[in-house]
Amino acid sequence: MAKSTARQRLRNEINAGSMADIAFLLLIFFLVTTTIVEDTGVQVKLPPWTPDDTSIIMSSRNVFSVLVNADDELLVRGNAISVDELKDYAKEFIANPTANPEFAKKPTNAIISLQNDRATSYNQYLAVYNELKAAYNELWDESAQRNYGISYSEDMPIAMKKAIRAEIPLVISEADPFQYNEH
């Protein structure tokens, strides 16, 4: 065997510098293709299925009936209003600060009855649902501020959240849709 000098031993190394480039290329590929999708939506709890689904529309003071027709128009407790007005109306109805005999006796008695047509657009349906949920969220937040001095959020103490939700329970009853015409 020929004796190798120090210089020759250095030259025998494989140049690993380009390995980093290859890895970088792969890294950039994954960086670009990765889409960190944050999945968000409106959380809903559907009522359990009962075979004889009798939709009882009570015409009592405690029922906040919302009807959405095929043309995406709203009829709330007999009044035609727009979606923008819905939240404040619902809040007033549930909390009833002026003890109006027409509105809910107590927040625990309030029932929201939502009914839509089969031809109602999903956009409108979700917008209405969103407004009703927003009304409750605001009421919960006000209650949290009043009682505990903190804002209502998902990560507040569970006991407080339970107390607030017991005081103002969210009850949205969805009757089967009426059907006129479906495009």
Partner: peptide, 16 residues
């Protein structure tokens, strides 16, 4: 929705 209720899948999230 009706079918989900029949299958007792009640936790629903309307993606938005």
């Amino acid at each position: 929705k009706t079918e989900l209720r029949k299958s007792n899948q009640l936790k629903v999230n309307y993606s938005a």
